[in-house]
């Protein structure tokens, strides 16, 4: 039986690739901050990569108290074997009470590998985190059954308590350039033959990277848009606003848009300032992916469409008329 009292502090894993951090790491620092305050413990950023000292510094400026880094050429690109070895070694040495990882493809590859090796619990794809008043454990909340059900999960008897957290659910905090904190360097080397997978090549397929997760304004269409050609109406509106075009699952299924544009439970979680849901009925799977939006504008011909329940502004009408009218109205306002 492990002695739970040996474990303290909250760790946030900052994912990097080729020395560049993913936003979700910094988002998690901001999300974990109130928890660290509540527990009266330290919030520590953990960065594994190549040439990542600057990232550790950034993590501190975004609110971490200190950072632990593992820097080496074997960490330039993500591999399960190298990263799992390094992270497990750190956990065993420092014994954090809580470990949070961004729920990116790599985060969801690493998380279970590490939790399994540590024989502890991992809650995947969380959208809310809190401290349980009664027990002091982390209460991880996540959508399940396609977003139809929320579950709050705890890991009472094992440490660290681990969770992966969806990108774009939380926002980054303010960057405080003056803030300082200790950066501890750990030497963990991984021999070439310990890494059993090899990256042969990286192929770019998407002409422009579609970064829905970080978009400030998203113009999203559903099956109600009616056809692939009709998405031009949405593109026109997006062009005026400098927005990114997204879509619902039905649109991907119909082959009108590639999967990279999909918003929702089985696509991307988004948190823009302004989200336009056009011809989207508002199935729970979709709503689960947009609830972090500041303002939602819904356009639908069906006045009873569930999307209107979550919208700040709704227009009941034919999108073929309303969307061009919106484009014109924004144009006029900007001119």
């Amino acid at each position: 039986m492990m002695n739970l009292a040996d474990y303290k502090n909250i760790w946030v894993f900052i994912e990097t690739e080729c020395g560049k951090p993913k936003n979700v790491g910094f988002e998690l620092i901001n999300a974990a901050k109130p928890l660290a305050q509540e527990k009266g413990c330290e919030l520590i950023a953990v960065v594994i990569g190549k040439d990542i000292e600057g990232v550790a510094k950034d993590a501190i400026c975004y609110g971490a108290d200190s950072a632990i880094i593992v820097d080496g050429p074997e960490y330039e690109y993500y591999t399960t074997d190298a990263f799992a070895k390094a992270l497990v070694a750190l956990v065993e040495k420092y014994k954090p009470e809580t470990l949070m990882i961004g729920a990116t493809n790599n985060g969801r590859d690493l998380g279970p590998r590490v939790s399994c090796r540590l024989k502890t619990g991992l809650t995947a794809d969380c959208t809310a985190i809190a401290i349980d008043e009664e027990t002091g454990n982390v209460a991880w909340t996540r959508p399940t059954f396609g977003g139809n059900l929320m579950a709050t999960i705890m890991c009472p008897e094992n440490r660290p308590q681990m969770g992966t957290v969806r990108p774009a659910v939380f926002k980054k905090g303010a960057y405080d350039e003056a803030k300082t904190g200790e950066i501890v360097k750990e030497e963990i080397t991984v021999a070439a033959d310990e890494i059993r997978t090899t990256l042969i090549e990286r192929v770019k397929e998407v002409a422009e990277s579609i970064n829905l997760e970080e978009a400030e304004i998203i113009v999203s269409g559903g099956r109600g848009v009616g056809s692939q050609e009709n998405f031009q109406l949405l593109q026109d509106l997006a062009d005026v606003l400098g927005a990114t075009v997204g879509c619902s699952r039905a649109v991907v299924d119909a082959g009108w848009m590639p999967h990279a544009h999909q918003v929702g439970q089985s696509g991307k979680t988004v948190a823009p300032k302004l989200y336009f849901a056009i011809g989207i009925s508002g199935a729970i799977q979709h709503v689960a992916g947009i609830s972090g939006s500041d303002t939602i504008v819904a356009i639908n011909k069906d006045p009873d469409a569930p999307i209107f329940d979550v919208a700040d502004y709704g227009i009941v009408g034919n999108l073929n008329e309303v969307v061009p009218a919106l484009t014109e109205a924004f144009k006029a306002e900007k001119a």
């Binding site: 024989k119 502890t120 619990g121 991992l122 809650t123 349980d132 209460a139 959508p143 399940t144 977003g147 139809n148 059900l149 929320m150 579950a151 709050t152 999960i153 705890m154 890991c155 009472p156 008897e157 094992n158 729970i284 709503v287 689960a288 609830s291 939602i296 819904a298 006045p303 209107f308 329940d309 979550v310 919208a311 700040d312 502004y313 709704g314 227009i315 009941v316 009408g317 034919n318 008329e321 309303v322 061009p324 009218a325 014109e328 109205a329």
Partner: peptide, 25 residues
């Protein structure tokens, strides 16, 4: 190691502005 503490169905209802029966423009 993980225990489900509770489950619930998400209720999200905003009292937004809904414009109905107006001309698109």
């Amino acid at each position: 190691p993980t225990k489900v503490k509770k489950t619930y169905t998400p209720v999200t209802e905003k009292n937004g502005v809904k414009l109905e029966g107006m001309e698109a423009e």
